[in-house]
């Protein structure tokens, strides 16, 4: 690991100030991606700004009909939260499928979304549930947030403070995971929301995306059978040693059908 200056601010304002003052600063949430990246010398930030000491980024609460999860809420907290389980059981279940227990004890929802790994689980939930990403300066709709491979709508000096999930009528998540890393080779969340059916995919493309034809089919008949005749084009999907684009395209439909069956 290359050397860097370390900062542990206690407020969002101080974190942004430290980031702006650094020549090439990097915010660190749970560090479960950043630290392995630093260890492999794949990044060389001048300054690392640890968000672990900022109280306002923690906590999970209900706000009217929404669940508001602080950016620094750990996957294990979401997976262990009775509130999340009662308001959005599918999200509770998804969090418990991320990584392993020790990764879940450190990794955070804000860190996962800021990083936007194509194989991360939370992006599927954020898109399918039509969540809002709250930052230090604005609110970003899920549909506008994911812009490409490890790319998001966040500005370079913007910090996620919380994610607001409107309560769906029901949702379900199905994941075909890499057995070693636990990352999603393909993960699909299906949600019945006040604004209609939403189907979001992670793992298959450069970033999470929705499937409008799947949504229309499920709006007509909310059943796994309604998806049986549909297919997804492998064009533009990820292809690597774990799965070809064609295999991922196949898995998208299979996982979508399983997600429908898992809806509750």
């Amino acid at each position: 690991m290359y050397a860097f200056e370390f900062h542990r601010p206690s407020s969002v304002a101080d974190a942004i100030a430290a980031l702006k003052a650094a020549s090439d600063g990097k915010l660190m949430a749970g560090g479960q991606t950043l630290i392995p990246t630093l260890k492999q010398r794949l990044a060389q930030p001048s300054d690392v700004i640890d968000l672990g000491g900022i109280k306002e980024l923690h906590g999970i609460r209900q706000d009217g009909n929404s669940l508001v999860i602080g950016a620094m809420a750990k996957h294990g907290e979401v997976a262990g939260s009775d509130l999340v389980k009662s308001v959005i059981p599918g999200l509770h279940e998804l969090a418990g499928l991320i990584g392993d227990p020790q990764v879940r004890n450190r990794g955070t929802i804000g860190g996962s979304l800021a990083n936007s790994d194509p194989a991360a689980d939370y992006p599927a939930a954020v898109l399918a549930l039509n969540a809002t990403i709250k930052t230090d300066r604005r609110s970003i709709a899920a549909d506008d947030y994911f812009t490409g491979l490890f790319q998001t709508a966040l500005a370079d000096d913007e910090l996620i403070t919380a994610i607001s999930f409107p309560r769906p009528e029901a949702c379900g998540y199905a994941k075909f995971r890499n057995p070693a890393s636990r990352y999603a080779i393909v993960g699909v969340m299906v949600a019945r929301t006040g604004g209609g059916v939403r189907v979001a995919v992670t793992g298959a493309g450069p970033c999470a995306f929705r499937l409008p034809d799947f949504e229309r089919a499920l709006a007509g008949s909310f059943s796994a059978d309604a998806l049986a005749g549909l297919s997804v084009s492998p064009s533009g999907l990820n292809s690597d040693m774990h799965a070809s684009a064609e295999y991922r395209a196949h898995l998208v439909r299979v996982m979508a059908q399983r997600a429908v069956k898992a809806v509750r």
């Binding site: 370390f6 542990r8 560090g31 479960q32 630290i35 392995p36 690392v48 640890d50 672990g52 294990g76 227990p101 020790q102 990764v103 004890n105 450190r106």
Partner: peptide, 19 residues
């Protein structure tokens, strides 16, 4: 490398001491 940090198990190779 698993140790307990404030009572929960974490991977000590994926944390900085200063954290």
């Amino acid at each position: 490398c698993v140790v307990h940090l404030d009572g929960r198990s974490v991977k000590a190779c994926t944390m900085l001491a200063v954290q």
